[in-house]
Design a protein around this nucleic acid. Structure first.
Length: 433
DNA sequence: CCTCCACCGGAACGTGAGGAGT
DNA sequence: ACTCCTCACGTTCCGGTGGAGG
């Protein structure tokens, strides 16, 4: 049967959203609830920029979804705006780099330098490869110091800029950076500048990150440090209410929806991103059902969907050997269920795993290695493995799946190597007890 | 109280891929 | 083109261990 006017039909669905972008975590709202003190603190650290003095470098720490990035972006914007005020007239450059995307020394320097290149001078941009790193640094230094390239590619003082300008470089997720030389270079760049100043803001969700840093970097980056605490359920409610007002049409949320989203997200270390995702997915699900109102049931569904998507993604990107271990665990559990036993041990998983390797032609890793792979899968939350002692019968890990078996299997079946053995029936081991 | 199972998990080392320096 | 280094992934070796059963 041919579907008549497929998209026409789909478009007829009454949308519940007014503006979905607002619900994405990348969106920076004009008002950040419950972050006044952090915004004030950051503002007072950066305010010297408006007097042409160098603000201290700042290191910001906080778990995911605590508003670090949003606050920094917000304060950065305000800072730029205020600098344009004719009474003040101090240009401030705020350059934002996400180190998870831009993770090498070269690319960080290149990105920062290119932020100074005006749009009509596109050809002056530094290529993403090809230059020696120190030349990129030199270009960055000159740009930051108020120079620019003329039509003949010579460095000249930029007439549009004045001495005393401050550049704030924001390095989000600094812990993802490969090597700390960039940090060393950037925190010391002021020694090479004559007219202008640079200060660095590092953002991380890993508090231990600084332990591994070169002590010199550590002290200069940590001149000031800030910690963003997680939101509690009430604060999350306020955030959700504020965003929902902008993103969703009026009166489409049941009373319990926002508190429920907030409570669920608060349980997971007060992650606002998580709360917003929950609310957005809930509304999407309701919309797909062509409902006019989002109910608590949609939130529950959304939570399952998010968790399922996460697991699927993790399983999909697992290395082959880990997939085999996971499959062995699933099959061992199914086998045990038939017999009415509930504990699955490392030894059993390893035995089935060896069988699977033989059938697929994969190398068989040692049991020691498999122990580590089992720990990793445990950490990823795919199953739980805890060490127990069975007295006379030894000490081992007790492994139990903690995600839906059928959907996990179908994700595993996407792997060509494994597809042939997903429905393999392992032989029963001779087991005591 | 001691034994002894069946594995845990630390340490040291080997290997190959990929980057940086020269 | 060359070496050197680092890193991820695995192996080998081995001391360590909670508690049921004797």
């Amino acid at each position: 049967m041919v579907v008549n006017d497929l998209f026409g039909q789909l478009l007829e669905v009454e949308p519940l959203f007014r503006n979905k972008e607002v619900m994405r975590s990348s969106y920076t709202p004009d008002d950040l609830p419950h972050r006044d003190s952090e915004i004030r603190a950051l503002g007072s650290i950066l305010v010297p920029a408006l007097r042409g003095e160098t603000p201290s470098n700042v290191f910001i720490y906080g778990k995911t979804g605590t508003g670090k990035t949003a606050c920094v972006k917000y304060v950065g914007n305000e800072l730029c705006k205020k600098g344009l005020d004719p009474d003040i007239d101090k240009r401030v450059n705020v350059i934002y780099i996400n180190c998870e995307v831009v993770d090498t020394q070269y690319r960080v320097l290149q990105n920062i330098a290119n932020a100074f290149v005006p749009a009509d001078r596109w050809s002056h941009r530094i290529p993403f490869t090809g230059w020696p790193t120190d030349e990129v640094y030199d270009a960055l230094r000159r740009y930051a110091d108020g120079q620019t390239k003329d039509d003949h590619e010579h460095w000249v003082e930029d007439p549009a800029r004045k001495a005393g300008e401050v550049t704030v470089i924001v390095l989000d997720e600094v812990d993802k950076l490969k090597g700390d030389e960039v940090l060393y270079t950037l925190t010391r760049i002021n020694a090479d500048l004559h007219n202008n100043k640079v200060s660095v803001i590092g953002i991380s969700n890993d508090l231990k990150f600084t332990e591994f840093l070169d002590p010199r970097v550590k002290s200069s980056l940590g001149e000031e440090s800030m910690i963003f605490p997680p939101y509690d359920a009430h604060q999350l409610e306020d955030i959700l209410t504020q965003r929902a007002k902008m993103a969703l049409k009026d009166g489409i949320l049941d009373d319990g929806v926002i508190p429920l989203c907030a409570a669920l997200a608060a349980r997971e270390h007060g992650d606002a991103r998580r709360a917003l995702d929950l609310l957005r997915v809930s509304a999407e699900l309701a919309e797909r059902e062509r409902k006019k109102v989002v109910g608590e049931s949609h939130v529950r569904l959304a939570q399952n969907k998010i968790e399922l998507d996460r697991i699927s993604e993790v399983v999909r990107t697992l290395p082959t050997q880990s997939k085999l271990v996971l499959l062995a665990t699933i099959q061992g559990e199914e086998l045990n269920k038939e017999v009415g036993v509930q504990t699955l041990t490392t030894g059993e998983v390893f035995a089935i795993y060896k069988d699977l390797c033989k059938h697929t032609g994969c190398d068989i890793l040692t049991q020691r290695r498999i122990t580590d792979l089992i720990s990793e899968l445990d950490m990823l939350g795919i199953f739980t493995a805890r060490v127990i002692s069975k007295g006379r019968y030894g000490r081992t890990r007790e492994i139990q799946m903690s995600c839906p078996i059928d959907s996990t299997k179908s994700v595993l079946a996407e792997d060509e190597l494994i597809r042939g053995v997903v429905d393999y029936k392992p032989k029963r081991q001779n087991r005591l007890l």
